[in-house]
Design a protein around this nucleic acid. Structure first.
Length: 743
DNA sequence: GAGCGAAGCGCC
DNA sequence: AAAGGGCGCTTCGCTC
């Protein structure tokens, strides 16, 4: 076919990539000047017999869409959208520089261009029909929907009072000859009558489809109209296919539906206006179509991933809706404590500097570095400021103070703010709970991610400061009559690395009864194990050397280079290492770090040499990484030419294996403990290698049940094809009325 | 004044 | 040229 590539001057440098993106067999005309009107483009196309236009010219969007916008529409939003004018099809595509700025840039351009060049291969969306339901139509609509095969649901909410404004349902019907038809209704959540019907629709037996439905079902549960048979989630579905791509519904539509057209800007219309319901209907219709397109096109491995991931959703929902009780008095007390400390420290710092200094201001920190002769140190983070401090005793005094104030400000602003949700009597602060969300579809590695709850309150529960002196975990309290328990996997990542790479030295080290980091210290630095740790008492004798081994192991595992290892450890520690290891006097800090990494490499050569090589070969050949649990990751990055891409993939395998095991445990704890003992057991959260829960005092046996659920032997095939069974030991800490008290 | 990206930092 | 992985939240400083 004849194509017009209508681009901007910025795109010109990336034109050479377009040849392979568009593919052979098409005559492509290129225009790189901004066109004034659509007529111009159309007449040009008619002359050249062009039937398809791919364009990056953002200013054309309002003309193509035939609408006016409150805010100028962006290419980011409209990339992948399609329009038709005078029998010519237009597809918006991302800026051509995305070929080099995004790992999946080329892939997406190819995908969008193929809407024109391979149109027959695309799923075509169903016709959009819709209506607002009312008291006179609901019964008939309910009867109609009773015969559909699946329903896509979406709710609209307002933040105030956590209110649902309307609920949309897009039914999917398949005729005897296989034709797919959809129809969408919107039920305003404006009367008891309507709410009753929302409940009835939610209770229909066929499978329900949501986009990030954990959000919707939390509100519907709050309204006591729970959803039956929620088994499809388009965000989960897409994450299971291309975990590295965006997962919002607008993107899914542009990716999965040929005639997709961006609609999210329609959300900003008058509340409960007819157009407000239209927006809701569009969401439902587009969710349904993304769902069907995925079912048709997604490969077998993505569907296998889905079987692994989707069952986590209801368990996460349970944990999210459970939350953790907050001791608000304690929160305020601790907050006051740190505020006082910050005031004192800031006063000292200001006095020394003679100005009011803001430790969080990048500008002011830059000034400070100039004054203290550290202009050459680029960044202003902890590592950099430590380096500034190393230059002079006075510097150390100042920059350490800056870091200390920062650390304490972080506690106050992030972890001690008022995030509790009042339940019942809102004036009784002792009834507050901290909520959070746990999302299986937000990471590349299949770990859960955490952030604030769907109720727009709460916090990420996975990064709460752990040090006792921070006093953060003490404000999280178990419910009355309950204690906390936390069961975690021991040395999960290093163990995984051992089994995945098949480095027998590492497997032996991690499986021995000895302390892993002390074994490493002994191996790396050629000293007897007994000089690191007392074999009789198990006490650490040489803390410094053990710590050095720990840092070296951590750095080397993530494929760190000497310079970064130096930054991480700090010059002081590195020089201590030099002394300790009796390294030649002429060794510079960077040489010392190179030496340390070399020691790791000699100890665990498979990890440091064979594994990266295997990674490059595997991913360059197949783009796929398949874990022992059967999870497949499609990798867009190029690990051969880009070290950061390589690093992320090196980290992926152990991280994913670990996440898989914990997710399996998460399911088992739900099925084997919560379902049976729910009166005496609460499931709180997953924190990457641990499960946090509560058990009723007097029911301590539940700790053992959790431990049993986490005992999941797994056969891991190493990079050479040798299979071994890996069992990760579980440590249980329990008995705390506060999270900080678990021992 | 709202919105956004970058930097910094908490966890594993 | 050189580059430590995976996340989410806050502050700052800038633009619109």
């Amino acid at each position: 076919m004849n194509l017009l590539l209508l681009i901007t001057s910025e795109d010109i440098n990336f034109l050479p990539f377009m040849k392979s993106i568009i593919g052979a067999g098409h005559s492509t005309f290129i225009v790189d000047k901004q066109v004034g009107t659509l007529i111009e483009v159309i007449s040009y196309c008619k002359k050249k017999n062009i039937t398809g236009v791919i364009t990056t010219q953002e200013h054309l969007i309002p003309k193509l869409a035939r609408e006016t916008f409150d805010r100028a529409p962006t290419l980011d939003d409209f990339a992948g959208s399609m329009f038709t004018h005078a029998d010519i099809e237009f597809v918006m595509i991302p800026k051509l520089n995305s070929v080099v700025t995004q790992t999946y840039g080329k892939f997406l351009l190819q995908r969008f261009v193929s809407k024109l060049t391979q149109s027959n291969r695309w799923y075509k969306s169903t016709a959009f029909t819709w209506e607002v339901a009312n008291e006179s139509t609901l019964e008939r609509l309910y009867n109609e929907f009773s015969s559909c095969i699946a329903i896509a649901i979406d709710i609209e909410t307002v933040e105030e009072n956590l209110a649902i404004t309307c609920v949309g349902y897009c039914g999917i019907w398949i005729s005897d000859v296989g034709d797919i038809r959809t129809h969408t209704i919107v039920i305003p959540c404006s009367s008891t009558y309507n709410l009753t019907y929302i409940g009835k629709f939610n209770s229909l037996p066929m499978g329900k489809i949501f986009q990030t439905g954990k959000y919707d079902i939390s509100y519907l549960a709050r309204y006591n109209v729970p959803v039956i048979n929620f088994i499809w989630d388009t965000a989960v579905m897409f994450h299971c296919w291309y975990s590295e791509l965006p997962k919002d519904l607008a993107f899914l539509n542009s990716f999965l539906v040929r005639d997709a057209r961006y609609w999210k800007h329609e959300a900003s219309v008058g509340f409960r206006d007819e157009r407000y319901y239209l927006y809701n209907a569009h969401d439902c219709h587009n969710t349904a179509n993304a769902f069907m397109s995925w079912l048709i096109e997604a490969p077998e491995w993505a569907k296998k991933n889905y079987i692994i991931e989707m069952p986590l959703i209801p368990i996460c929902h349970l944990a999210e809706m459970t939350g953790i009780k907050l001791d608000n008095d304690r929160r305020r007390e601790v907050k006051k404590h740190w505020e006082k400390v910050i005031n004192t420290e800031s006063a000292e710092l200001n006095k020394m500097l003679g100005v009011t200094f803001n430790v969080n201001s990048s500008k002011q920190v830059a000034q400070l570095k100039i004054i203290f002769g550290c202009e050459d140190i680029k960044k202003g983070d902890e590592k950099a400021l430590k380096k500034c401090g190393d230059r002079h005793a006075l510097n150390k005094f100042i920059f350490d103070k800056v870091l200390l104030i920062r650390q304490h400000r972080k506690l106050v602003s992030t972890y001690l703010k008022d995030v509790g949700l009042a339940l019942g009597d809102i004036h009784d602060e002792n009834k507050q709970r901290v909520l959070y969300s746990l999302n299986p579809y937000n990471t590349d590695t299949a770990r859960l991610a955490s952030k604030e709850h769907s109720f727009w309150i709460g916090t990420n529960i996975q990064n709460q400061p752990r040090e006792e002196e921070d006093r953060i975990k003490e404000m999280y309290v178990a419910d009355f009559g309950f204690h906390f328990g936390e069961a975690d996997y021991a040395q999960a990542e290093s163990r995984g690395t051992g089994y995945i790479t098949g480095d027998t030295g590492l497997i032996i080290a991690v499986e021995s009864d000895k302390d892993f980091h002390s074994v490493n210290a002994s191996k790396f630095f050629g000293v007897p194990y007994e000089s690191i740790i007392d074999p009789g008492t198990g006490e650490v004798i040489d803390k410094t050397l053990r710590d050095l081994a720990k840092r070296t192991n951590h750095g080397a595992n993530y494929y760190m280079m000497a310079k970064t290892l130096l930054d991480t450890m700090g010059t002081e520690k590195v020089l201590t290492a030099k002394k300790l290891l009796k390294l030649p006097i002429h060794f510079t800090p960077i040489m010392i770090c190179e030496y340390l990494l070399k020691q790791f490499e000699q100890t665990y050569p498979v990890v440091r040499i064979d594994y990266p090589a295997w990674m490059i070969a595997t991913v360059m050949a197949t783009r796929m990484l398949i874990s022992a649990g059967g999870w497949t990751r499609y990798c867009f990055g190029n690990p051969r030419d880009n070290k950061l891409n390589l690093n992320s993939l090196i980290a992926h395998c152990p991280q994913n294996l670990n996440a898989y095991l914990l997710n399996e445990s998460w399911l088992r704890v739900f099925k084997e403990v919560w379902l049976i003992h729910w009166q005496n057991f609460k499931l709180n959260a997953q924190i990457h290698d641990s499960i946090l829960y509560q058990y009723r005092i007097g029911h301590e046996y539940l700790n053992d049940m959790v431990k049993d659920c986490m005992h999941n032997p797994i056969v891991v095939k190493d990079i050479k094809g040798i299979s071994r069974t890996m069992i990760v030991p579980v440590d249980v800490k329990c008995g705390g009325a506060r999270w900080s008290d678990c021992k």
